[in-house]
Nucleic acid binder design. Structure first.
Lengths: 316, 316
DNA sequence: GTGAAAGCGCTAACAT
DNA sequence: ATGTTAGCGCTTTCAC
């Protein structure tokens, strides 16, 4: 049952039926009634894929994510969806596992018109590569693209990181452990962290107190355990998540050790419960902006300020 | 630049080009080389939408969710994606806000071939309605469908709920507060909870200690505050999430009140940190099974057992 | 106001 | 092994 069947049965042409379906142009009241009656009677609905093909537009936005289940991504996706839904767009989830080949595959699917635009919440592909693909649809990344002319919405971390390190400095903490999810070489977040550190302390972070493979509570726990085994005893942990900081705390608690100072990120519930100072990156807003860039096909950079949220860990 | 252009330029027909692209049937080595050279030279890629239309298949699975950002949904989505990715399917997120009209809209998009199958992680539409739509593509729900012949993967909560209430009974707690997300009338989860309660205590839960509008930490906090204001003082809270239980705890902490016993659900990090007993519903597995039902077009029911995880809250 | 017909770009049955 | 052709189902231009 397609539009031609309806045309035949109602005695009009398929173009008139199309007009009725999309209420476009002028259609006589009689034709409209006749056609709508037939549509009702045969319970006809138009095929979305045929429409997409004909229009050259899918109303789908691809969203590339290395993994779900982590606050950065869930907040971002939620932000994107909150803007996409009212605009009549849908989100297609594209899991990447940080694998550049998989990412390239998705980028090629943009060329193939599988979606109208693509948002990279994270990317292993060099930014330069993206430039060639911009002609096929809008591409938005969620990191600072530097001088590259590519659409981006991202958390501006500098100031909040500096604020956090300034606070650490003011408290005169000496041994500063840093827990991150990915190594300096591949992670602009790690680079920003180091940069802020250097600006405040005029030195590099202590490599012995650095771990760049942390993504979960358990990872935080184990990292703390490792430092303790090596007898490093940090005064404070600057971590990549409140949940991570909670893992560090848990290790000390379980072993009856004094709990070091902690700084989290992402403004998660665990930080609120345990009164851990944190950094809120406002990813929800970043997601919203990313979506808007995607559909408006604007090549702009939109930084979103992060904020250091101080909490008095003593109160715990 | 479409398949016909490639055909013309290479001197073969579009069907031979199609064969090369999809490496199907027999194509002479020479033709393959000739055609592939032209494809390379003109940097041609096939259009995904045209292919979908022609094949009548999109490789997209719609996933309806009332909201993201809650553990039930994120775990479920992750489970679905973990199975969908290796199978070459993509997940289209369909936010519903618990609104049956929006859900119906998605169901109709299944008819319109916008996706090959649809998974309802939650549904306001009566199950009966789904039956009519099964002819248009496979429909999977994530709740027990009872006697209806519809595909379903879901958490089997009975035993774990009973185990939790049995434990409460064994401890001789009297005043049992219950916090849920949605009211008895519309929520099968609430119904299961009550049913388990009745089986253990031979009575209905105390309505004065019931709140069915709880979804966040803050809601838990406020519910506790409300009960306290009304001077009800529950011995124990049976809640719909570890985060919720943490909210209840926080209220008592902030007001220097003795912390009541707590039972959470979802096996969240907050429960782990605070040593709150919980119920793990294994939603990741439910999601995986839901996806498999969706693509295999099997109309089966697959319950997944939940487990009561006991923790000694005293240890906190 | 309505219809004919040419797309949109690919697939697959059938013919050779 | 390769080509012809009729789909897949809708939109849109142009003519009347």
């Amino acid at each position: 049952m397609d539009i031609h069947d309806i045309a035949k049965i109602s005695g009009y042409s398929s173009s008139t039926v199309s007009r009725v379906i999309n209420n476009r142009n002028y259609v006589s009241e009689k034709a409209r009634q006749d056609i709508q009656r037939v549509i009702k009677e045969f319970d006809y609905v138009p095929n979305e894929v045929a429409r997409d093909l004909s229009k050259g537009k899918t109303h789908n936005i691809g969203v590339v994510l290395p993994h779900t289940s982590h606050p950065y991504y869930t907040q971002l996706v939620e932000g994107i969806m909150s803007a996409a839904f009212p605009a009549g767009y849908r989100i297609v989830m594209l899991p990447s596992k940080f694998d550049a080949d998989i990412e390239m595959n998705y980028l090629n699917r943009l060329r193939r018109k599988a979606y109208d635009a693509i948002i990279f919440t994270s990317h292993g592909i060099p930014i330069k590569e993206f430039l060639k693909y911009q002609q096929y649809g809008s591409i938005v990344i969620c990191h600072n693209p530097g001088d590259y002319n590519i659409a981006a919405a991202y958390a501006e971390r500098e100031e909040s990181y500096k604020a956090a390190f300034q606070w650490i400095q003011a408290q005169k903490y000496q041994k500063i452990a840093i827990l991150l999810s990915r190594p300096y070489e591949v992670s602009s977040t790690a680079q920003k962290t180091f940069q802020a550190y250097r600006q405040i302390f005029n030195s590099n972070p202590d490599k012995r107190l650095l771990n760049t493979k942390i993504t979960t509570f358990e990872d935080g726990y184990n990292a703390a355990s490792q430092f303790h085994k090596e007898n490093y005893k940090p005064d404070i942990y600057f971590t990549n998540g409140d949940d991570i900081a909670a893992g560090v705390r848990q290790f000390h608690l379980d072993n009856n050790l004094p709990i070091p100072k902690l700084i989290g990120q992402e403004n998660q519930l665990s930080g609120k419960i345990l009164n851990i100072p944190t950094i809120n990156h406002n990813f929800h807003k970043v997601g919203k902006l990313a979506f808007e860039l995607a559909i408006n096909n604007e090549i702009k950079q939109l930084p979103v300020e992060s904020e250091f949220i101080f909490r008095n860990q003593e109160k715990l």
